[in-house]
Amino acid sequence: MARMLVERNYRSFRRTWVIIASGFFEPVFFLFAMGVGIGSLVGDVETEGRLVPYVVFVAPALLAASAMNGAVFDSTTNVFFKLKYAKLYDSVLATPLGPRDVALGEIAWALLRGLVYSAAFLAVAALAGAVTSPLALLAVPAATLIGWAFASIGMAATTYMRTWADFDYVQLAILPMFLFSATFFPLETYPAALQGVVQATPLFHGVAMVRDLMLGQVGPDLLVHVAYLVVLGLVGTAWTARRIERLLLR
């Protein structure tokens, strides 16, 4: 039944597609500002024992960040409005849908939004010469996995928020991950004491997974990144379903 909520969201947002499309431009601007602009000053970067142009290094990270941003935005602000102000889910419960359908439907919609951002960004990255391997096509399903992990955790966190001011905490979590998850610099450039902290963040695993695929460097580490994000997605989905059920049926 969750697919019915996905269809409802699609019918609603197709009239405001410009707002959704606007979220795609931020990583594209970063790609050309950081990858092309700063990349011309930096030159080549060593990653996994291989020298690559800086734009090739940074593009996978921005793709992963695009999936994260699209999923988090939709699973937090939009869900909060529907839950606290529009009271949409109270109406949904008058239909055959239940609280767990609400959780799965909203997570699926946020995941689809992150998927659209990522696919569009991959096309732009290819045009910019930042794609060097046919395995880059697998970056799209990889971005879907990233979107699932962040959408489920983001929606679970939203169920605890009381006012719009609480969204400052979301930004406080997202911005450092965006800047310091080996997004713009190789992991080896961080102090040894911080490398373990960086590797513990979910975006690091998303960035490393997408980067391996776009560079065609597939190894055992890829399974670690996939497992980390799958576990995060499962935990987040179960947590969200329980919280939504508790809030709507209390």
Score class of each variant (00 low, 15 high):
V6F: 14
N9M: 00
N9S: 05
Y10N: 11
R11V: 04
T16D: 11
V18A: 15
I19W: 14
I20V: 12
P27H: 01
V28R: 10
F32W: 14
A33M: 15
A33T: 12
V36W: 15
G39H: 02
S40F: 09
L41E: 08
V45H: 09
E46R: 13
E48R: 12
G49K: 10
G49E: 03
Y54G: 01
L62G: 01
L63C: 08
G70I: 00
S75T: 03
S75W: 06
V79A: 07
L83R: 14
A86G: 03
K87C: 04
L88R: 04
Y89H: 10
S91H: 11
P99Y: 10
D101P: 15
D101N: 13
G105A: 02
A110W: 00
A110S: 15
L115V: 09
L115Y: 07
V116Q: 04
A120M: 11
V124P: 08
A128G: 11
A128I: 07
G129T: 00
A139K: 05
A142C: 08
A143G: 15
L145R: 02
I146K: 08
A149D: 02
M155Q: 05
R162K: 13
L172S: 13
L175D: 03
L175W: 11
P176I: 00
S181P: 14
P186H: 13
L194G: 04
L194P: 09
V197K: 09
V198L: 10
Q199H: 07
T201W: 05
T201M: 14
L203I: 03
F204R: 04
D212V: 02
V218S: 10
P220V: 06
D221L: 14
D221F: 14
L222R: 03
H225D: 02
A227F: 03
V231A: 14
L232G: 10
W239Y: 00
R242W: 01
L249A: 08
R250P: 02
